[in-house]
Amino acid sequence: MTDLSEITASDTTEVPLTTKADWSSDQAVRWCPGCGDYSILTAVQMMMPDLGVRRENTVFISGIGCAARFPYYMNTYGMHSIHGRSPAIASGLAIARPDLDVWVVGGDGDMLSIGGNHLIHALRRNVNIKILLFNNQIYGLTKGQYSPTSEPGKVTKSSPFGSLDQPFNPISVALGAEASFVARTHDMDRKHMQATFARAHAHDGAALVEVFQNCNVFNDGAFDAITKKANRDDMLIDLRHGEPIRFGAELERGVMLDDAGSAVLVDVADVGADKLLVHDEQQPDPSVAFALSRLASTPSEPTPLGVFRAVDRDEYTAASEAQVDAAKQQQGPGDLNALLHSLPTWEV
């Protein structure tokens, strides 16, 4: 018999060096050719060797959808669970096993529609899980219905006269849900993805990374206006902690806060560099991060990328362990016989 503590005991030997191949499972990848998911998978598999973690201590949990096939392709522990529920299942695993690195992968339907409730509660609790939200603004696996991030008026199979829904802005949702780490990246920039995922991994608490991901079958080119190489300089706003927020080929444009507290795009020449907003991802108040998340309502306007928010806040699984440890210290390890005699007793 093997005790759970033997498995959870930290291995003190050096973490073996690995390569991308070590993190790739033997399963054939079955996304549509050209799908953005491939580049995200590659980015994750390439990043893992740099994290200094063990494969056996790494778990990928997903729900249902195209993105949710992700765990099958990672040579780690993995669970392809049910639609929308992966943050809940991952929370239970992470609370039971704080020794593990638990990643959650899902699409915009999985995370924001059927699983929206679990997502916001995992974020507010700050359970130590790393959530990669592949946002392609469409339902792929069910063959092309509008999703909770589709733009208003979107014509799809289920909305031939245009979608009537106001979409979610995933970054705004996460910030509103008290997330301690919120970031955005996109599937056309592997380096940026790797750096962003690594930041999420390093964060102590729940982390949400929105990944703009192209569905080349049902919503092809949804992000072209901002992520195509030729457009990036003018359309992607790189958020760098401690630096004024600027973009454009000559960094001629920037972001400042107006009198109402909204983030607005400006020409640096018009306002002067010292008026620009200096990005502070560690600001306890999420208002400015929220304002930044509202700069673009669709991926056709200049859109911020990078870490919106990364703050220190009590992490749930550690707090849960602390309660268990404190109870053992104060009350002693559980004494079953004493428990059964803890209500008034009498002798016959």
Binding site: M79, I89, S91, G92, A94, N117, H121, A326, A327, G334
Partner: peptide, 25 residues
């Protein structure tokens, strides 16, 4: 909790059983 019991008040019934299954995993 001194019996190595962890209790998790979930956001709904679905998350409650999901978390329990995650812990079993």
């Amino acid at each position: 909790k001194n019996f190595d019991v962890r209790t998790f008040q979930a956001e709904d019934e679905i998350a409650a059983v999901g978390a329990a299954l995650g812990a079993s995993y």
